[in-house]
Design a binder for these strands. Sequence first.
RNA 1: GAGCUCGUAGCUCAGCAGGUAGAGCAACGCCCUUUUAAGGCGUGGGUCCUGGGUUCGAAUCCCAGCGAGCUCACCA
Length: 550
Amino acid sequence: MFESDFERNLFELRRQKLQEIEKLGQPAYPNQFRFSHTIADIRARWGDTPADSFESSSVNVAIAGRIMAIRAQGKAGFATLQQEGQRLQIYVRLDAVGEQGFALYKLLDLGDHIGAAGYLFRTRTGELTIHVEKLTFLAKAMLALPEKFHGLSDVEARYRQRYVDLFANLDAREVFVKRARVLRAIRRFFDERGYLEVETPMMQPIAGGAAARPFKTHHNALDMELFLRIAPELYLKRLTVGGLDRVYEINRNFRNEGVSTQHNPEFTMLEFYQAYANYLDMMQLTEELIAFVAQEVNGTTITEFNGHTIDLAKWQRLKMTDAILQYWPSEAGVKPALSAFESPEVLRERLFAALGLLNEAMAEGSSITPERRALLKAVRDGIGAVYADSAKNAPIGKTVYNLFEEIVEPFLVQPTIIYEYPTVVSPLSKAKPDDPDHVERFEFFIGGFEIGNAFSELNDPVEQHKRFEQQLAERGRGDDEAHQMDEDYVRALAYGLPPTGGEGIGIDRLTMLLTGSKSIRDVILFPLMRAQVSANKDQGTDAAEKDAEH
RNA sequence: GAGCUCGUAGCUCAGCAGGUAGAGCAACGCCCUUUUAAGGCGUGGGUCCUGGGUUCGAAUCCCAGCGAGCUCACCA
């Protein structure tokens, strides 16, 4: 627990102070405090009240809070209390609180929790302040607070010791307040539309509904291998078979993948399903939902993200192939004809030609800006990877999809719906009636990354069984993210799934957009961190502490 | 997994042409009854991430490791 002798000494000093406080007749760890107002209440109600009106009629209040600043001045002193992210100053004078009260004040430290009762006034500088008549000790901070001006800025410490981050950095707190508002708004949105909130298994014998590597676990009593879910999808559709026409679930998914500013191994996903709807209905619903949530959370649909101003109420819809053409850089030659997306050979040739032209454009002596060069390099590397994959007999649909991800996705900053996905990358989506190679599916992108994914659900059990078998073949070829066979899910479909639209939305990423957070770890209270090798420098001295860790 | 950057007092940081550490805040003592990054005087506090190497001498240079951030890879 202690990181240094400094901390050990401070802790011991504070214990002595606690004993002194008890001698003053105050319990060291009282079990309640009745406050008349929260600090927020007081700020809201008297924040603008002029000084003279406090003199004509006194306002008595009692508040509780953590001491975030303390300034003693002989026989008087100030302290700033913080509660629920709001602060209020108190003024303590010997002649107002008495010998005992002032003795207590002198035993207070930064970080302590106290109660303060008295009347409101304004100081010379106009700050709303409580003139304290009674101090109540509530709990002690036995460790030192971070620097009062800069707060806790070490990123690692902020994630690992979020409890400090939350009270030391109020903007960190604000992110999580907003995150709660996001969830509340989503629930309101779906509840008002007749959706039922449900919870489906997070431990599953088959981890289905997405292409991702799962976490494995084991149930002892049943001696059963289980997976943490990678998606709730297949269970939610079983519910729609069961007659729950509109369901939604907000819960964690777990994917055994790397971490990045956009990926945490456990993340929160919203999924919803609506019977008798298709992917076009889902598009409509998505646009309404995102604008609604933004309005509820921020009071506006405008958000600032990564240097961009984004309007979450303004959407564009683009067919995937059209998007590729639109973002095809001029340096890569004339845009491919639409027919190129139907022939693996033609597309491959076009990609090869584009690589040559891009390399030429970036050659020494060319007069392009460094920014353009960086962009072209990313595009060239992307196309290079896609080309390499396509040369390994990847299905044309996979090549088109990869190409889209490489040259379009990072540039989709304003809200954009991309639709018409290749069937090969969409094993659970319903094919277009007139085009078996494409499905009724869309994803939407904001701020340069994917936020959600939706489709008309495939409800033909025979077709679904076939798609699963294709996935098994992929698995056999070494793709360990290909979908597993789920016989029970096929059986559920055999009982009849009505035409259904479904969608999944990443809540963490949506929260990033709405809070301007660049990293997903800033919107997750306790992001996964590598285990720390215990730097316990105080071995052997604190047996009880060691026991507590086991 | 790869590349780049970072790791110095509880916190925020300086010190890095190699000569064994410093500031502010926090802590401790004293003074101060309207301060607010309060102020004044004084005091204590460091295996400079870890382990090797080079050197008469390493916080500083080199190598390896650990941890973190960013970028890339991975990521229906």
